[in-house]
Structures are given as C-alpha cells and as structure tokens.
Amino acid sequence: MKQQIKIKGTLQKYSTIIILLAMIMLSAILSSTFLTTTNIMNVLKQVSVVTILSFAQCMIIITGEIDLSLGTVAGMAGSYAVILYVATGSLVLSFGFGMILGALVGLINGLFIAYFKLPSFIVTLAMQSITFGAITLYTKGNNIYRIGDFKIFGQKELFGFLPITIFFIILMCIIMIILLRYTKFGRYLYAVGSNSESAVAAGIQVTKVKWVAFIISGIFAAIGGMVLMGRLNAGIPSEGQGYETDAIMATVVGGTSFSGGVGTATGTLVGSLIIGVLNNIMNLLGVEAYTQRIIKGFLIIIAVLFDVRSKQKKSTIKIMSK
C-alpha cells in the first residue's frame, strides 16, 4: 500500500515533466525532423525570451503577486540598451545600462506594491503603460536598425555550438534555482507567498522581500528584452508587448500556484518548453493557422488540469491517512 502511494507521489511530483516527455515522444513519432539537433535548438531559441521572463514571473507569483509589466519592460530596457550601444559601441556598458533600467522599474513597482501595499495587478498594469510610453517618447514610434554587434546577445554561438540564447536560459535557470532553493531570500519568498501574516510573525521583513523580488524581476525582464532585441537584430519596443501573458501561461503550466507559495524554476522551464514544443510540432506538421490556436488553448488547459488534479489527489490521500 505504502509503496503504491509512493509511486503515485513521484508521478504527481513530476506530472509536468511527464506531459513534456509524452509530447516529445509523440512529436518524434509524428515528425522525423523533430528530434534533429537543429530543431531542438530552434525550440530552445524560440522559447528563450519567454522562459527568461517566466522565471521572473514564477518568482513573483510565488510571493503571491503578479508582474504584468514584464513584456513592456523587456521592450523598453532592450531598446534603450540598443540605443546606448549604437551611440557608444560598448556592449558591457549598454548591457549594464539595460539591467539598471530594469532594476529601476522593479524598484518603482516594489515601492508601490511592497511599501504602499497597492495591488500588484494594478501597479504593474499601469507600469505597462508607463514603460512603453518611456521608450516611445524617445523613439517617437521609430524602430532602431543597424544595431551592429548588439545582435550577439541573441544570435552568437558560444563555443561554436551553443546558441547564446540557450546559454541565457541555462544561466538564468541556474540563478533562479539557486535563488529559490539555496538562499534564505528564496525561502522567504515562499513563506511570504504562502501566508504573509505568518511570515511577519515568523520575523520575515515582508516589505523588503517583496521589494527585492520586484527589482530582480525587473532585471530579468531587461535581460530577456536585450536577448530579444539581439535575436531580432533591431530595437523594436513594441515586440516586448504580450510576453507577460505568455510568461504567466508558461509559469502556470509549470505548476506554479496562483495563490502563492508554490512553484519551481525547473517547473517553469518545463512549462515553457511544453508550449514551445507544441508550437514547433504544429508548424512542422503544417497545421493550419486557426486550428493551431484552438489546439494550443485546449492543450494548455489540459496540462494545467492534469497538474492540478494530480496535486489534489495527493493531498486528499494525506489528509485521510492522518
């Protein structure tokens, strides 16, 4: 009996990974090109920006908040970094500047959300408009072209085989795993999201924790934005829009709970890959455009349903055996 429960438990713990593996297997059967190195690299490249943003979204959702400004912050910070690069020619300077911009937006988000205790939904929604205005104010609606070597942030291959976008996914994933699993700050994030009143009573400085989380989120968004612009080989502010919803989707498919306190970096990566593989295989198979949307929507619902159901089952078993 116990053994059975244990196996079930493992199954449930890795439910999203199982969905991903199942999709990969099915895709490999359906399309002979799917499992080629180039195609796998493509999938990873395509999900790179949204994955980086999803890590930030995951962290924020763990604290029980939400960041709707991720996409536009990516567009803004990425475009400003491009502008600075075109003006100065320094990759380091422009990359650093982009991150500072992201951190600044996070600082402002955090000020209103953590300090003044406004709902993050509203604040970051407003920040969407502010950040997009802040970049178009400068560009006057024009895009930035001929960005020279800035494109290496999105197009270079490291060590001759590893696309830099994939390197960024791995790097950001490792950073997020360390942050969530091995630091005190990470533990506080979960505590705050699980029950912020308990967190205060346990001696956690909730305001500070949330504030820092939003700053990190802003930096992640900026990095994602710079990768995006590098990949596009242009500075296009509007391209960032909409990424926040994709990031929420990947995060939720990856098993992060909207009520806060639950979620992992690896889960988010898997969630993002599930959506990436789905898009890829439908294109490889030439599924018609409108049908693609319907299938995508349903599969996301099914993935979340599977995840939620398995978790519900797990908890009922435990309660009963009390």
Binding site: T33, N39, K45, Q46, R231, L232, N283, L284, A289, Q292
Partner: peptide, 20 residues
Amino acid sequence: QLADWEKSKGMNYMEDWMQA
C-alpha cells in the same frame, strides 16, 4: 501562418519551416 505583424513570430515560424 498568422504572425500578427511581429518580427519575432516571423522568425519563429521560419525556423520551424526550415526544419519541416
């Protein structure tokens, strides 16, 4: 396919098509 006027989506579709 519908790439919604967006550069990044055009890029994604092309990457997949070149495989298919």
